[in-house]
Nucleic acid binder design. Structure first.
Lengths: 151, 151
DNA sequence: CTAAGACCTGTAGTTACTACAGGAGCAAGC
DNA sequence: GCTTGCTCCTGTAGTAACTACAGGTCTTAG
């Protein structure tokens, strides 16, 4: 806590991890990072471990883990006795989510590409895209999930 | 506005379009649906056109358009003189977004699948996934975007 | 007449930040 | 000593697109 030249302020932490200053404070509020020591002036003073923790969190976010998952993974990483099985559970679940999102997006891509191809993009006022959007067939509607319908 | 048996209340509209009642009211607040007529008791009474409009909006959302895009598309659809070119612009931009998201997710999928494969999922306390998450190489960090670094 | 159900308004919660406003500490130059 | 400019502080509000109440009113079937 002695104010040396190498003191890790929030700005330094941000620069060393690539995480926005406001985001760092947000993570602290959310309990993802421990409350750091403070200088006499009330400023946050971080330790080397905090740099590691924050880098870990950043990696998790880059891989698309939720903050909740990141929290779990971090606590597993900090607890020495974390087993592979515990960690793998989190990763596998996320992978399933990613794959399902991927499938969904692939479907969108196909549909949108078909629309783009069908549309001449001219001055015509009869656009096949608008036609497609108006064609909400009940078949497709039912496919999205059955629901009671009044007669 | 005479209360006949076939009056389209918000519940009926919801059932006919598959859009949640609260969402319908939300769309009205956001100006995506016009404020409907009201019954003497103050309840919303919709016309057939509203069913079409809401179905149109639902299709847009299913295709991943933002509400803002949906608003544009709807106003193009309602204005008879909409040209193909105008409509196609919106679709093409969205398609680009979808493709970029798709590329990102494919990258995530690859990375996560590699992690899953590398991890035995056993009782071992030395997990390759945690190792990977701790290995925030500066090379990868730089790849995400150059930034001034303090010495 | 009454109880259940549909509906009303208005507000708050969700995710993961980001963007202020308004103020205070801190280092350097004059 | 004083000012200038930077970093930092707290606290609040905004983002997207809903969803979920709370607490009340209207309507209808029995």
């Amino acid at each position: 806590m002695c104010p040396t030249a190498s003191m890790i302020t929030i700005g330094v932490l941000s620069a060393q991890t690539g995480v926005n200053i406001e985001t760092i404070r947000y993570y602290e509020r959310e309990g993802l990072l421990p409350s750091p020591a403070r200088s006499t002036g009330g400023r946050r003073v971080y330790a080397e471990d905090d740099v590691k923790r924050l880098r870990f969190l950043r990696r998790c976010r880059e891989l698309g883990f939720s903050l909740s998952d990141a929290r779990s993974l971090l606590s597993l990483a900090e607890r020495d006795a974390a087993t592979c099985a515990e960690v793998k559970t989190v990763v596998s679940k996320h992978l399933r989510d990613v794959r399902s999102k991927l499938a969904e997006l692939r479907g969108l891509e196909t549909a949108l590409a078909a629309m783009e191809t069908a549309c001449p993009g001219s001055d015509s006022t009869d656009c096949p895209i608008l036609d497609a959007l108006n064609l909400a067939t009940s078949a497709e509607y039912d496919a999205a999930g059955p629901r009671s319908r009044p007669a």
